Amino acid sequence: MKKVLLIVSLFLPISLCFAQQNGVQFTVRWNITNNRYEVFAKPNFTSSTFTWGPSQVGLVLPALTPNQAVNVTSVNAGTWVDKSRVYAPLADVAHDFHGVVSDGDMTNLTSGVETLLFTFTLSDGQCRAGVRIFVNGSDPASSAAGMAGGDFKNTIFSGVEAYGSNYNNTGTQCNNCNITAPELIK
């Protein structure tokens, strides 16, 4: 019993710290050089031994995307798999929803620094503009029309919930061309 109390007393402050910080954010970008989407995590804390528990990143894709699983390549925080999908549900016919999950693993995280979690491509190898991360509390809930009970909320369970929010989540672009023409001198 004393061992259990000791373990709990050591774990509780760490859990409360993460609960208060609630600080890992997600984003997705198109990498034009490597012809793939990349999903990143950015924490507001540093941990050389952050233990990702069961986690999910919800992806929102345009409904014109082929109705197939995305091809995932795991990089950090365990093995990621496109586990659940709902295509153009009545609650949001313009989008498809994918739940990419991992059982987790130890990961080195540095405050304010992006960590690449996984990359993915679509079955047709094309880029579709507008791919983004699911917005918890705003995108359709599992009980919404056509969602078939699918829960696509983002989560990172590391003893407590460590997912915070998304950043730069306005939808991917398929090119990285941000060149503006200089103003002509009259």
Score class of each variant (00 low, 15 high):
Ile185Asn: 11
Phe157Glu: 00
Ser143Pro: 02
Asn76His: 13
Lys2Met: 07
Ile133Met: 07
Ala141Ser: 10
Thr115Ile: 04
Glu161Met: 10
Leu61Thr: 14
Thr73Gly: 02
Phe97Lys: 01
Asn22Trp: 01
Trp30Thr: 06
Leu61Ser: 12
Lys42Glu: 14
Val4Ala: 11
Ser142Asp: 14
Leu90Val: 13
Gln20Ala: 15
Tyr163Met: 01
Gln68Lys: 13
Ser138Met: 09
Pro66Gly: 07
Pro62Ser: 00
Thr79Arg: 08
Ser84Val: 09
Asn71Arg: 08
Val39Ile: 07
Val101Tyr: 07
Thr49Val: 12
Thr121Pro: 06
Tyr163Glu: 02
Lys3Ala: 11
Phe26Asp: 02
Ile7Tyr: 09
Asn136Leu: 10
Val100Asn: 04
Asn178Met: 14
Phe97Ser: 03
Asn31Leu: 10
Val135Thr: 15
Ile179Pro: 03
Phe157Ser: 03
Tyr167Asn: 02
Gly78Ala: 01
Ile7Asn: 10
Thr121Asp: 10
Ser158Val: 03
Val28Met: 04
Phe157Ile: 00
Val72Glu: 04
Ala77Arg: 06
Thr107His: 03
Glu161Ile: 02
Lys153Thr: 14
Ala145Lys: 06
Thr155Arg: 15
Ile179Ser: 12
Asp139Arg: 05
Arg29Glu: 13
Thr107Trp: 00
Ser47Glu: 01
Asn169Leu: 01
Leu5Arg: 12
Asp124Asn: 15
Asn34Gln: 15
Thr115Trp: 01
Thr73Lys: 08
Ser123Cys: 12
Phe152Leu: 05
Ile133His: 01
Met1Trp: 09
Val131Glu: 09
Asn44Lys: 09
Leu64Glu: 15
Asn108Ile: 08
Asn178Tyr: 13
Arg85Phe: 14
Pro140Trp: 03
Ile7Pro: 06
Arg36Val: 14
Ser47Gln: 03
Asp151Gln: 07
Ala141Tyr: 06
Pro54Thr: 12
Gln68Phe: 07
Leu12Cys: 06
Asn67Phe: 08
Cys127Leu: 08
Pro140Asp: 03
Gly58Leu: 04
Tyr167Met: 04
Phe152Trp: 07
Phe45Ser: 03
Leu5Val: 11
Leu109His: 01
Glu161Tyr: 02
Leu117Asp: 06
His98Gln: 12
Pro89Trp: 05
Leu12Gly: 00
Asn34Arg: 14
Arg128Lys: 13
Thr49Ser: 13
Ser48Lys: 08
Gly78Lys: 02
Gly150Cys: 14
Val24Phe: 00
Val131Asn: 11
Leu117Arg: 07
Ser142Leu: 14
Gln126Ala: 15
Asp92Thr: 11
Ala91Pro: 05
Gly23Glu: 01
Val100Thr: 03
Thr107Phe: 00
Asn136Thr: 09
Pro89Val: 10
Asn34Trp: 09
Ala94Cys: 03
Gln56Pro: 05
Asn76Asp: 13
Gly58Glu: 03
Leu184Lys: 11
Phe18Val: 00
Asn22Cys: 04
Asn108Asp: 13
Ala141Gly: 03
Phe120Glu: 06
Thr172Tyr: 10
Ser143Gly: 03
Ser84Asp: 13
Gly149Met: 05
Val28Thr: 11
Gly149Lys: 05
Val8His: 01
His95Ser: 15
Thr65Met: 14
Leu6Ile: 10
Val113Lys: 13
Gly146Cys: 04
Asp151Asn: 13
Pro140Thr: 04
Gly78Glu: 02
Asn22Arg: 08
Phe50Thr: 00
Ile133Leu: 05
Gly78Pro: 04
Pro54Asp: 11
Trp80Asn: 00
Glu183Trp: 10
